[in-house]
Design a protein around this nucleic acid. Structure first.
Length: 647
RNA sequence: GCCGGUGUAGCUCAGCUGGUAGAGCACCUGAUUUGUAAUCAGUAGGUCGCGGGUUCGAUUCCCGCCGCCGGCCCCA
């Protein structure tokens, strides 16, 4: 009689089975054939494994089916293999590199050349690949896992002429691996850790999304690769739902809404710099005023500094060395040399400002806030909408404080940021970047700085991702990241500690020991940039802004033009109270005006007919159609005041 | 900057294989004065992104440039 192993299931129940049984057979025999059929992969003792793996010792076991999001990730990895197979079937000689699962789908990077030059995949070729990939799915080819010695692996992939794979194997071997796992389906073989699903059919349906260029190991000096992005779903229903969701997301795209709601324009005369319409400017200004108030209340002072500086400042700050590529250089007409630059950041000028006076430890922390316009010469291919521009303004501030004040200041900042994001309902992720290998300052200093950031995040209950080694050489940082409507992530807020700025600019304060000390500089922003923040807000609200942000808070529509005189008085009265109300007196039907105001996403439409004229009233209708009863102008003003209150 | 796609009226788009362009909406004019998502009619609007080339002739084919879009890199 074979030895028995005890398998513990997630509900705590235990089953005995003969040792050496495969996971799938165990499930079929001891749980149920339905689950065995639906299973994609298993987690045994916390490790993800294939269904064909054997159970040789007591273990805990969890089965994942298409109902689990984890399974979708596994089949998307399967899908990447299938796409690579399809590519090599259709385009022999194409080399494979890597093909990871990403947040939305997967990609696979190929090296494909024609006449010694990189040969991108055309849209037609992509279609053919997608077709072939789905044919491979239909063939229901099983995935098979084998282990192989690293020497054999090198031989295998060298024989195939897969030099990128060989390079990866060498790296893995260098890290100490003796054996590699191979996964094959049909004739196609790749090595990877797995797990994979039982067969290609489990993948469901593959949709290829786009092709683009990438570089081997993300290095521009290395080989140019062809990346294919794709996504897979267990069935067509899932794909359709995703496509529909994508269409909905496209409707929220801030570039589209910017046009539809008449908020901003771009022109080739100044790529990456927006023209703001009156409505867009209102939005911008509302946010600016809000941030001014918040920072003032939080102990900041606002200053303005020059927009243009000569290169002496940039040499001192280090920008001339490290950031010149991204600066717009300006010619001094007398010397004829490009020795001025539009400022790309506020920090150097703030440091100069700090240096104007002598500072006592008693006046720290000094919090300098500035909303000046900045220019950065971003790569042409990087520009896009309002999220990546060349001209923008940050809600920037630099806090000069004593080292013992860092923790308080970081905490105070995250509290303010959290308040701002909550006020507009934005969900954010935090990323804590810690000391890089090359750095300035003692380990002791870094310990305390990182602890200050970490403690704050934990005290505030902010979930964060740790990015070890990702900090700047002059200090650790927290970045606050928000997603746009199509899932791209953008950094908005940031809190960055800086231990060298004070040194470079010879900034000091006089301590209670009557000696000079170096302050620590904290770079921080909440919106990040007004431009990017507005883009995110537009998408977040789908253009339907809360009344306090909405450029137009109410539109007045009269039933007939004999009420126009009264409407004008109402507009004047409401605007006199500080509201942003418009009277639509164009010669078109009331229905049409209401429709346009609805499409324009105005929070309130105020209808005025004879009844309203008589009672000095308005009949408000909310965006979306909710009809409020006719009410006095004063009553509406009160309602609007409540809803348009700035948080 | 790199790879790919793309660029026709203010907007959304149509325009087989080359023969100097159309629609809807918006704008403008006129009529209509209406109670909660499109009143009717008419007029007008484009050197087809820009510059070269091929051709008897280019929106259409080729080259270069610019912008935009999706990625890469980078970043607020």
């Amino acid at each position: 009689m074979a030895a028995l192993v005890t398998i513990t299931l997630p509900d705590g129940s235990k089953k005995e089975a003969e040792a050496g049984i495969s996971v799938v057979d165990f499930v079929k025999n001891h749980i149920g054939p339905g689950l065995a059929k639906a299973a994609v992969f298993a987690r045994g003792n916390g490790q993800d494994v294939d269904l064909a793996r054997t159970l040789d010792a007591d273990a805990s076991l969890q089965i994942f089916t298409s109902k689990n999001p984890e399974a979708l990730e596994v089949t998307r990895h399967d899908a990447a293999h299938i796409v690579a197979d399809a590519v090599q079937q259709l385009f022999p000689g194409t080399q494979v590199t890597i093909g990871p699962v990403i947040e939305e789908g997967f990609y696979y990077d190929f090296s494909r050349e024609k006449d010694g030059k990189p040969a991108p995949f055309s849209p037609e070729e992509l279609e053919a690949i997608e077709k072939r990939a789905n044919e491979i799915i239909a063939k229901d080819v099983p995935f098979k896992r084998t282990e192989i010695s690293s020497e054999d692996a090198v031989k295998l992939f060298e024989a195939k002429g897969e030099k990128f794979k060989v390079e990866i194997i060498h790296d893995i071997v260098a890290r100490g691996a003796k054996t590699l796992t191979l996964y094959t389906h049909g004739d196609w073989v790749d090595f990877c850790l797995g797990p994979h699903g039982p067969s290609t059919a489990k993948v469901g349906v593959i949709k290829l999304l786009s092709a683009s260029g990438a570089y081997w190991r993300a290095d521009q000096t290395k080989a140019q690769l062809q990346r294919i992005y794709g996504i897979s779903f267990f069935d067509k229903k899932g794909l359709d739902a995703w496509s529909k969701q994508r269409e909905e997301a496209a409707k929220r795209d801030h570039r589209r809404l910017g046009r539809e709601l008449d908020l901003f324009h771009f022109h080739p005369y100044s790529p990456g710099a927006a023209f703001w319409t009156p409505k867009g400017t209102s939005l911008y200004q509302t946010l600016s005023d809000w941030m001014r108030r918040l920072t003032r209340e939080d102990g900041y002072v606002e200053i303005k500094t020059p927009l243009l500086f000569n290169k002496n400042l940039w040499m001192k700050s280090g920008h001339w060395d490290k950031y010149k590529e991204n600066m717009f250089l300006v010619q001094d007409s007398d010397s004829g040399e490009l020795d001025y630059s539009l400022k790309p950041m506020n920090c150097p000028s703030h440091h100069v400002y700090y240096g104007f006076g002598k500072h006592s430890y008693r006046e720290l922390p000094l919090r300098l806030h500035t909303q000046d316009v900045l220019h950065r010469n971003e790569a042409a291919g990087a520009l896009g909408g309002l999220t990546r521009v060349r001209q923008f303004a940050q809600d920037d501030a630099h806090i000069y404080c004593r080292e013992d004040q860092i923790a308080d200041e970081v905490f105070r900042f995250v509290k303010l940021l959290d308040r701002v994001y909550n006020a507009v309902g934005l969900k954010y992720e935090a990323k804590l970047s810690t000391r890089p290998e090359k750095r300035l300052g003692s380990d002791d200093l870094w310990d305390r700085a990182e602890a200050a950031l970490k403690d704050t995040l934990e005290k505030m209950n902010v979930a964060y991702e740790l990015k070890p080694g990702d900090g700047a050489f002059y200090g650790p940082k927290i970045d606050f990241v928000v997603s746009d409507s199509i899932g791209r992530k953008w950094q908005l807020g940031t809190m960055q500690l800086d231990y060298i700025a004070a040194e470079r600019f010879d900034l000091t304060y006089v301590g209670d020991d009557n000696k000079e000390h170096r302050p620590v500089v904290l770079h921080r922003a909440i919106f990040g940039s007004f431009e990017r923040f507005i883009a995110i807000l537009i998408e977040h609200f789908a253009g339907i802004f809360p009344a306090w942000l909405s450029p137009t808070q109410a539109v007045i529509v009269t039933v007939a033009d004999r009420q126009d005189e009264h409407a004008k008085k109402v507009v004047a009265a409401l605007n006199a109270k500080g509201f942003r109300v418009e009277f639509d007196d164009r010669g078109m039907s009331m229905q049409k005006k209401i429709r346009e105001a609805e499409i324009g996403k105005v929070p309130f439409i105020l209808v005025i007919g004879d009844r309203e004229v008589e009672g000095n009233a308005v009949a408000p209708r909310r965006h979306g159609g909710e009809d409020l009863k006719s009410m006095s102008v004063d009553a509406f003003a009160e309602l609007l005041a409540k809803e348009a209150a700035i948080p």
